[in-house]
Design a protein around this nucleic acid. Structure first.
Lengths: 230, 230
DNA sequence: CGGCTACTTGACCAGATTCAACTCTTGTGG
DNA sequence: CCACAAGAGTTGAATCTGGTCAAGTAGCCG
């Protein structure tokens, strides 16, 4: 891919929206392109936070692990999004593990490099703040759901968000555009895979969803949304 | 209070740490001082996000409410801290309600004003990012706890954090430095006030804590910490 | 075909919420 | 100054959501 195309890809990233062409060029020249195979980690929980990643294609899963091996899935990061916020905030280490779900194209910058770029450009600083702010608000909302809503609501909402973020039209309805297991859904909704499985079985009987291995098909998005609100 | 004192107070705020004297003076001149009586709100959930607040004294409670009136307590904000992040991130509305627990001294800036200050000063931009980043990480961790830990662990951890943030030495041990009800604790730990009450009763029998109206006394901080970790 | 992983399903159990009744504090007004 | 109302907290009993344990099935890849 030529330089021009790559710069366009970068310009589409949430951090660089509205930044001038020179800023994007500078960021591009300072970046290091990379690809990751499915299962590779971009960074690991507990490691020193050294690189900020911009994802261009594929899907990255951000999880936090407890000592006894339980996981929580914080979010999926897709094309145009960032991963590795601790680097922006100048925090010492990653609190999450970022793993490629399937082949990922990305770029990274070393902490001091990207912090310099941001310092030099108020637009980038503003973007960084608003991206972090949005993420913060999403977490707040999830926290509230987790303490006040029951599993079915939470799972319905999780599915709705996944479809909105990565839904793909198929003949029978909408499907999540990347492989996702019952375990993954459980870790997102704050429950166990058994309960997810049971709930999906129930929903299938009601015609809301279809099921498959590492795959969920949504037949009635509005129905799910209604479940998530109620 | 004279201008000089006020500027020192501002300089101690997390947003202005390390900013030059001129930047602090400029921020001070652009700020509007205010006080709030116990129970007054600095801003309300759903209202347009117009002002960023810096708290100088007292304690502010940030809560998110569900439609049916259930609340989640996101955090307490004390002296030297900020409230109203959506303004920094240029989000349209507050997702939280900020209420004074007891008399609060604060200052505020209108969104465009403070965003200008930040745009003009990379130190402020960096501080804003790192403050938001820290808050984000705290939420992440709480989210993980809420999905993986049981009530007793979570409540123990909640208490430990409260003591670390606002603990005051008293003859019998440490107490939380502001009035806090069982309901408040429940909303922080993601449970109901009955369970909090029962748990505290149990802990009192073990000599870990003492109880009082809107008051919790910690007798054995290390013991609590052990409970929170295990 | 064999083995691995993902998934399903039933039975059981427990932590935690809900419901309800009651007590203790604190502050207010007659 | 006392009575009383309102708010905060405690506690027991019943219930239930959802997690754990266990066993078995289905799909996928070498």
């Amino acid at each position: 891919m030529d330089r021009r195309t790559n710069m366009q890809i970068l310009a589409a990233n949430e951090l660089f929206a509205g930044a001038g062409a020179e800023a994007i060029a500078a960021a591009y020249d300072a970046s290091v392109g990379e690809t990751f195979a499915a299962g590779e980690t971009l960074f690991d929980q507990g490691a020193p936070a050294t690189k900020l990643f911009a994802v261009f294609g594929g899907r990255v899963r951000l999880t936090q692990c407890t000592e006894d091996g339980q996981q929580v899935l914080i979010r999926y990061v897709g094309a145009g999004e960032l991963a590795g916020f601790p680097v922006l905030a100048d925090s010492p280490q990653y609190l999450l593990t970022a793993m490629a779900v399937h082949s990922v194209r990305a770029a990274h910058w070393d902490g001091p490099v990207i912090r310099n770029q941001i310092r030099a450009n108020p637009v980038l600083a503003g973007n960084a703040l608003s991206v972090l702010g949005r993420r913060y608000e999403q977490l707040q909302t999830r926290l509230r759901e987790l303490s006040t809503e029951n599993v079915e609501h939470r799972l319905a909402h999780t599915l709705v968000l996944l479809i909105e973020e990565a839904g793909e039209r198929v003949p029978e309805g909408l499907k999540v555009g990347f492989p996702i297991s019952r375990q993954d859904l459980a870790e997102m909704a704050g429950t166990c895979l058994h309960t997810v499985s049971r709930t999906l079985t129930g929903w299938e009987a009601q015609g809301l969803v279809g099921r498959g291995r590492q795959r969920v098909l949504v037949r009635d998005l509005e129905g799910l949304r209604a479940l998530a609100e109620s």
